[in-house]
Design a protein around this nucleic acid. Structure first.
Length: 263
DNA sequence: ATGGTAGACTTTCTA
């Protein structure tokens, strides 16, 4: 058994954010980094920068311009599979197997557009369908698994700055919260964030760019999550979010989630 | 009152 530090971070362009990744690595020395929204095709991924930081294993699933996920690791990993839970070819998942056999799934669930209605806004339906396909997959999952990434839903009242004002805002609508709960129930997924920071304590991972000062009003949401199979929960040693990263130079609108686990 | 910012094969899409 060895203590392994995992990071999940929606980076919003891995190339623009390389100095921030170096800053995170200097401070935290994570063993494995799961990135979402890398916004780079695999042929243009900045391999050299990650190699220089010690991430000799790099498992990519990118596409031109949008979306894209990557797993960077200092320990050997084997790519397991890529799921297209949106059924449209977008690069939103990469799964690997850790040296001890545990599965690690890095997922970037669609944001779902602005209007919370399937008929008026197809993206909203695609988001719900993505969740339903993940639920079907979870129902058949029999192996210990860690799943992390940008889930684009903040389920609890204390996961958003104003429950009342966000009830009709995509990310916190009742239909989304119910859909996310069905996914949780399908594998008895354990919410590591809330295991270490129980509700109703405030816990956010994202603050919009559309504000000159993200700290004004603290209008955050918990869109990023770390979930594990129940049998893995006893191995989790710590979990926290790095809120200071939202104030770094040219920040992502999401902050890193840092989890320590005995593997 | 219905904005605002950021990034990418930028004149538009995604978030």
């Amino acid at each position: 058994m060895s203590l392994t530090k995992l990071v999940s971070w929606n980076i919003n362009s891995v190339r623009i954010r390389l100095p921030l990744i170096e800053q995170l690595v200097t401070a935290e020395q994570p063993d494995i980094i799961c990135l979402q929204e890398t916004k780079v095709r695999d042929s243009q991924f900045p391999h050299e920068a990650f190699h220089a930081l010690g991430y000799t294993t790099r498992i990519l699933h990118g596409q031109p311009m949008h979306h894209g996920v990557a797993i960077l690791s200092r320990v050997p990993l084997v790519e397991d599979r890529r799921y297209d839970w949106q059924d449209n070819g977008e690069a939103r998942h990469i799964g690997v197997r850790l040296p001890n056999g545990i599965l690690l799934e890095n997922v970037y669930i669609p944001a779902g557009g602005d209007i919370p209605d399937r008929d008026e806004n197809p993206k909203f339906g695609q988001k719900l369908d993505f969740y339903e396909r993940m639920t079907r997959w979870s129902e058949g999952l029999r192996e210990p698994t860690i799943m992390m990434g940008d889930f684009n839903i903040a389920p609890l009242e204390s996961d958003v700055w104003s429950h009342k004002q966000l009830l009709k805002v995509v990310s916190h609508t009742p239909v989304e919260v119910e859909t996310m709960q069905r996914l949780r129930d399908a594998h008895d997924w354990q919410d590591i964030g809330r295991h270490f920071v129980p509700a109703p304590e405030r816990l956010y991972t994202w603050w919009s760019y559309r504000s000159k000062d993200w700290t004004v009003g603290d209008r955050g949401r918990r869109l990023d999550h770390v979930w594990t199979s129940p049998e893995i929960l006893p191995n989790i040693r710590s979990h926290h979010v790095l809120e200071a990263a939202r104030s770094w130079d040219r920040p992502s609108d999401h902050i890193p989630l840092i989890t320590e686990i005995e593997l």
